[in-house]
């Protein structure tokens, strides 16, 4: 099977839900949902820690002084849009449309990278204002929660990129389909966590 053939013709023969067409694929999808369940619990623990410690800003700036809603809102829009583009990518996969899939996953990666850029800029600003990891319990909890999420975004971007490299070599087949499907599941999860961060950390931090 040469990669060239794969990319154009072989994909036309894929079933309607290629990610669940094989036993391996079904195992992967179920296993990944379970992994996301475990990740949810871990993030819940970090959220709990943050909520317990967010008042302990010591000498540093408080949540009200610190957070800039417009920029965070921009990050939120970027990440939510990237979730949409990954949906279109999976839709392309279901239509056996290799080009559509690759294009929209590519857009997802770019949006993910711009989100990371904004987050790094935000952290640099905070450090300048005296909000550091070691400065207070609030700082430790904030950077742990946000940092874990950011690390997940970084991993997602890397993961999708490497999947695209694989797909360029091998085309879209029953082996690749579950991988893209899982990556998009993961991406939605990272997005949902961010929705909670936006609400619990930023919006609630502004009002309380």
């Amino acid at each position: 099977m040469s990669a060239q053939v794969d990319r154009t013709d072989a994909s036309a023969g894929l079933p309607a839900h290629p990610e669940r067409a094989t036993m391996e694929g079904r195992n992967k999808v179920l296993g990944f949902w379970l992994l996301l369940g475990a990740e949810t619990v871990m993030f819940a623990c970090f959220f709990g820690t943050y909520l317990a410690l967010r008042g302990s800003s010591m000498d540093g700036p408080t949540t009200q002084e610190l957070y800039q809603i417009p920029m965070v809102a921009l990050s939120t829009v970027i990440l939510l849009t990237s979730s949409l583009t990954s949906v279109i990518g999976v839709h392309g996969m279901h239509q056996n449309n290799y080009k559509k899939m690759m294009f929209w996953f590519g857009v997802t990666v770019l949006l993910g990278l711009s989100f990371l850029g904004l987050e790094i800029y935000e952290f640099v600003e905070y450090v300048h204002e005296g909000h550091t990891f070691t400065g207070s319990a609030f700082g430790s909890a904030f950077y742990t929660l946000l940092g874990t999420h950011g690390a997940h975004v970084l991993f997602g971007v890397t993961w999708i990129t490497t999947l695209m490299i694989q797909a360029r070599k091998r085309g879209l087949n029953l082996d690749m389909a579950p991988k893209f499907y899982l990556a998009s599941l993961y991406w939605h999860f990272v997005d949902v966590v961010w929705v909670f961060i936006f609400t619990v950390v930023y919006l609630m931090g502004k009002v309380s």
Binding site: A52, L53, M58, F133, T134, S136, S140
Partner: peptide, 17 residues
């Protein structure tokens, strides 16, 4: 290892967490 303050009461931490 990294000097965080989750459990250090002097820096606002809370050991009960």
């Amino acid at each position: 290892l990294f000097g965080a303050n989750f459990f250090d009461v002097a820096a606002g931490g809370n050991p009960v967490i």
